[in-house]
Design a protein around this nucleic acid. Sequence first.
DNA 1: TCTGGGGTCCTAGGACCC
DNA 2: TCTGGGGTCCTAGGACCC
Length: 394
Amino acid sequence: MGEPYFQVKEQLRREQVQVFSSNYTLYGDMSRRVMHYLGASMPGVEIYSIDEAFLDLGGLQQHLTPYLGDLDALARRLRAGVKARTGIPTCVGVAPTKTLAKLANRLAKKDPSLAGVLYLDSAERRAWALKQVAVGDVWGVGRQYAQKLTAAGIDSAADLARVSEAWARKHLGGVVGARLVRELQGFPCAGLAPSEDGTLHRQSISCSRTFGRPLRERDLVLGAVASFVGRAAEKLRRQGELAHVMTVFISKNRFGPDAGAAGGHSRSAVLTLPVPTSDTRELTARAGQLLARLWEPGAVYVKAGVVLAGLEPPGGQQLGLFETAVAAKRAPVEPRGSQLMATLDGLNERFGRGTVRLAAALGPKGGGPAPWQGQAAWRTPAYTTRLEDLLTVS
DNA sequence: TCTGGGGTCCTAGGACCC
DNA sequence: TCTGGGGTCCTAGGACCC
């Protein structure tokens, strides 16, 4: 997991392992189907990632008992429902906090005798579950913290649940660590953020790529940044929002002989836009200015990216103190641009991503693939979203 | 030779403001 | 000579998640 292909290539060949590029079009579509079913079945659903969701079972227990069985039975019905509708196997953990639910889910996945569902319905069962899980496998404990914790003699989730709040604050990133420990103890510290329309609502939207080859030419990097802006703005418009803040970053190689010391291989520049926008043209122009601030002549870059943040729905802009309603009428002039963007998005949806884009985001003059495009050499077909890719059965 | 992409949240220091 | 208290914003960085 997470190993670069070139490092394991020979072993994969020996073992005759099949290799595929990731296919987010397919995964995204299957995810949408699963989430749609969950959303239609349960009152509160938070889509946490492409393959995980939190369901709020608060207050459900009393309604369930006589007729429908307990929460365990409910979880098993949902699991069977997902499987029947999508063919996707899932596991369910039920507990008083998100962190414990994740932990229960993990155990359900590992122990086949649980048939995919674990309900931590008592203090005894929770204590048992905490003992089963290594501290590094707790949600919120990554490599750094795991190392620190085991060095301090804290090996299991049960050990971690026993540390003092002060200790957690001091050694596990402040308030984050304190919450983590409380959650393990069964006190909820994170609520549910339900997704109203069944899609994931983001605080920031980004697009970044490692280049197909290292680049030292400024116009090529600019082309890459322009194409990333185009993609990020497209996602932004899909979410129906405008961005107030844009970040551009460029990175040098962090591996190999001329890698800088720890850190320092990446530089970023941030801009707060006077007026929030989702217009690719405006964002591209600004991104060019940001890149100019970062550019070091002679440097060789391997990656670049764009982040759009400060997202807000249209029409929410505050008037400045001295702005009058008359001046504010400038805002509705936007629709010309929005309509152009809507047309752009419509064409690209119909004829394929990148069919129409700004000249700044085009590849090199001679044509051919742009040097900043990734190579997805072993992509599987988009079976469920492209007519041409439909599975054929003979 | 070749080392992913897209997110979240929090902290800290410095510049600057009143 | 002595130099407070309470903020915001920006930038950078660090940890984590899937």
